[in-house]
Design a protein around this nucleic acid. Structure first.
Lengths: 343, 343
DNA sequence: ATCCTTAATTAACGCGCGTAAAGTTTTTTG
DNA sequence: CAAAAAACTTTACGCGCGTTAATTAAGGAT
């Protein structure tokens, strides 16, 4: 590598013994130049370590190689995990992923989307806040940028949605719990931010109804993203006041369940399906740490990889289709039941 | 808001009844124009929703308002949490944070740094991979970009380091454990990726030595970022083979401890300091979920907010100083002992 | 060797904005 | 109220690259 710092493509082209338009062509598609010229450029690249100015490159482009990934709260390991896989897929596909977290705030989600529009991304994966989202802002954004919604569906927004089949999640857990013991009550937050929570409750009610069983929905109070603490407090209160109608609890999601298990432990309630267990707890999501709860958590797992792959493939088709689909695509991926020790 | 889409600053300036250079000045510093002019621009902004082209803006700037935040593995809730706070601070300060995860891979860390250089950021917060980092790549990067290292220190890299005082962490846990029961053994990974792990082991050895106690370091095998599983497996093996020299275990970090607790639960070993408890477990980091383990985890907490604030302030001074400090700054923030149920 | 196709070169314009210089207007100050 | 200072306008150039049109060179097939 030479010590001399290269200013621009002109200079680099000269050093590779080529013209700037040819080098420019190479950077936009290395396969578009003759193999021998390509080699010359790549040899020069080894020696001089030149990178085209990103800002100048993108200035006249209508769209870039950037791909936005927007999640509602990145410190939630579920989103961290799904974002991680999507990000890796983007890199493999030659895109530059840019990761954003709305930090649970409407204002930030809006600002992210506005800023992202200005970046002219080739496409965006958006997991919206849900109830807290500014629908107008999202609608405007989706008009300007090819968007694939994931995790939380918002009707008619974006060109496609990739998410989980909440009915399948609840069906599998409820069916399993009913088959192996008492039918479950359903434990959730009173005002969930996420539409999936509502779909899960509805699925629970419908499935219990179809089985001729009486449903019990237990709603606990709490705001924000501290789900574990909300679950823990709620569990303490529900158990202390004897409001638990059965010995089997199905939590809306794993983070609530982690809090629930924590409360059970604190109260000396043994959780699990074996002898001497006072209560069974199951849940949904297969949160990255649900393997390590005490006891380990029986849950319905997202197919993380499948969701990420489907997201990528959908965005690919979308980009190839010029950013618009004739009809909005919806993909719901079913759950995989994971039996562990808690139920 | 008008329907007409504005192409560029010239057009927007005309609509606000001002000249382009004035409007340009406004966007670079809204306070640099007369209040009346500022109002005219902001009124026009309300009506026409214009945003300057980012790429054109940054093309001729030597540095931008971007701030990079690079962490080794974002799906680790510890990094998600610290990144979350730093990101919010950046936004408050008027910067545009860009978040990157190296996903535990040297190659990705290198590529991130190379790409980040091309973005001409005002500054970068870098928590390096540690042992796996490409020192040359980081050194090159720090030459080009004002960098504040955090979490993992690498000698002489970057203009400053903000991290935790590992000695203080271990001192507080060891002191507490010795005061209230048997002196701890130290449980860690055999080949930790992170230099903090090494510092913690050394601190443990030194503190035990100073107290005239015999140290016991237990090293468990395992690669990658699945620390909980490594801790769980290791704990099972250590306990099964009777290699635990005392009933008190100090884990190098909370994620290992979460795995350790999981193994204890699976073996029916009661953890805690009360009667009927077979073992005490403590740890370091105050991982976001350590409150919810069973039992809840006694740990030495990072001052997340303090670390984030110190990072921000350091980067501010660094930017004001033109990107270079006369001498490298090192800030070590002491731990806060958090007594919970596990020890 | 000739023709034909493909690829590279040369020359030139445009993108949207930063920025500097020179001139004009507005505001502040004594 | 005049002078000085500050803010704004006009004009113009430059940044680094995308891109196009016209031209020339290179490589392959007949």
């Amino acid at each position: 590598m030479s010590e001399h710092k290269i200013r621009n493509m002109e200079e680099f082209a000269a050093l590779s013994g080529l013209s700037r338009p040819t080098v420019s062509k190479y950077f936009n598609d290395p396969g578009s130049v003759r193999p021998t010229t390509r080699k010359r450029i790549e040899d020069a690249l080894e020696r001089y370590d030149f990178r085209p100015n990103i800002y100048a490159m993108n200035q006249n482009r209508s769209l870039t190689k950037n791909v936005g990934i927007v999640v509602p709260y990145l410190a939630d390991p579920f989103f961290a995990e799904i974002a991680r896989i999507i990000e890796l897929r983007c890199i493999e596909a030659g895109f530059s992923p840019i990761l954003y977290s709305a930090h649970g705030e409407q204002k930030l989600e809006k600002e992210i989307l506005e800023g992202l529009t200005a970046l002219k991304p080739a496409g965006v994966f958006l997991a919206p806040l849900g109830r807290l989202s500014d629908r107008g802002a999202i609608e405007r954004f989706c008009r300007d940028v090819p968007t694939v919604l994931f995790d939380s569906n918002i009707e008619d927004m974006g060109e496609a949605f990739v998410g989980s089949d909440n009915f399948s999640f609840v069906q599998q857990t409820v069916e399993y719990l009913c088959r192996t013991g008492a039918p479950p009550c359903f434990f959730e937050m009173r005002t969930p931010a996420n539409p999936n929570a509502n779909k899960r409750r509805k699925a629970y009610l419908q499935i219990m109804d179809a089985a001729g069983l009486e449903p019990h929905v237990i709603k606990v109070d709490g705001e924000g993203w501290g789900f574990e603490e909300i679950g823990r407090r709620g569990a303490h209160e529900v158990i202390a006041t004897g409001r638990l109608p059965t010995d089997t609890v199905l939590c809306s999601n794993d983070r609530l369940a982690i809090g629930f298990l924590s409360a059970c432990y604190e109260r000396g309630l043994r959780v699990g399906r074996g002898d001497g267990c006072a209560i069974r707890v199951a849940s949904h999501d297969d949160h990255p740490f649900s393997r390590f709860t005490c006891p380990s958590l029986t849950t319905a797992a997202h197919e993380y990889e499948a969701v990420a792959d489907k997201c990528m493939n959908t965005l690919f088709s979308l980009i190839e289709a010029g950013g618009r689909f004739a009809a909005r695509e919806e993909t719901l991926i079913p759950a995989r039941l994971i039996l562990r020790a808690s139920a």
